[in-house]
């Protein structure tokens, strides 16, 4: 069991090495990158915006409802919304959702190419199929921090709207909360996480699609397995990075 996991991990890193080997012609690669940006990044914006806005709102309402002690200042609502959205919700929670959305898209599209021998066809022609398929995804996901930036903005906006229009706090108090005890390093921490998660999102689902065996049914199973592993690795990486970057 343990040996199997270790050999999978080894295979994963060998795959990464191969991805950067023997690159595809730039004129072809350019087109592939734009297509991946469209499929992975642009296509996710809608759902990310929707979730961020409403979850931000919920965080704000929940905080407000839990502030029953009149000694605790109202501006804490804005403060708590900012902290939870920037530190955890936008980078981590959205990434786990993206492990489902982008991840299953990546695994099933590469997996289908595997079972229909399209990957063999690439290899036979002399194309480095890993570079051809995975490299453009990695490059496209360099834009992932923008997605998370949007999630942060909309999460806080949602919190502000829910707080102010729900009558839990005033706009002035909320904004005072947003500005209080601001630690710039928290932003850096959030974006370091985001970059790491982007690489996980691009490569682990690719790994599961690329090395799958079987037919159409197994493509579905591989997508599920890929989702589980991608989220597990994101959560573990989150824990490790938080320990490394924030703990004193």
């Amino acid at each position: 069991m343990l040996i199997r996991y270790l050999s999978q991990i080894g295979k994963y890193f060998l795959m990464l090495k191969e991805v950067f080997n023997k690159p595809t012609k730039w004129s072809v690669m350019k087109g592939l990158i734009f297509k991946e940006i469209d499929d992975l990044v642009i296509d996710s914006l809608g759902i990310v915006a929707f979730i961020s806005f409403f979850v931000g709102g919920v965080v704000s309402i929940q905080t407000a409802l839990n502030l029953t002690n009149p000694l605790i200042p109202k501006y804490l609502i804005g403060f708590a919304t900012r902290q939870s959205v920037i530190l955890e919700f936008a980078p981590t929670f959205i990434s786990v959702i993206m492990a489902g959305k982008m991840g299953s898209f990546i695994t099933s599209s590469i997996g289908t190419m595997r079972v229909t021998e399209q990957i063999d066809a690439l290899e036979v022609m002399g194309v480095n199929s890993l570079n051809y398929l995975v490299f453009p995804k990695i490059i496209a996901l360099l834009l992932y921090p923008f997605v998370i930036g949007i999630a942060m903005f909309l999460g806080i906006l949602g919190g502000w709207m829910a707080g102010v229009y729900g009558g839990f706090t005033s706009s002035v108090e909320f904004i005072q909360g947003l500005q209080s005890e601001f630690i710039p390093f928290h932003i850096a921490y959030a974006f370091i996480k985001t970059i790491v998660f982007a690489m996980i999102l691009a490569t682990i689902p690719s790994f599961h699609g690329y090395y799958m065996k079987g037919g159409a049914l197994e493509v579905g199973k591989a997508s599920t397995v890929a989702f589980v592993w991608t989220s597990v690795v994101i959560i573990l990486a989150n824990y490790i990075l938080t320990q490394l970057l924030l703990a004193k």
């Binding site: 289908t112 229909t116 021998e117 399209q118 063999d120 066809a121 036979v124 022609m125 002399g126």
Partner: peptide
Amino acid sequence: RTEIGMVFQGSALFD
């Protein structure tokens, strides 16, 4: 490999 052409069982066209 650039001198080889292959027709796969399921055609393997890029969909």
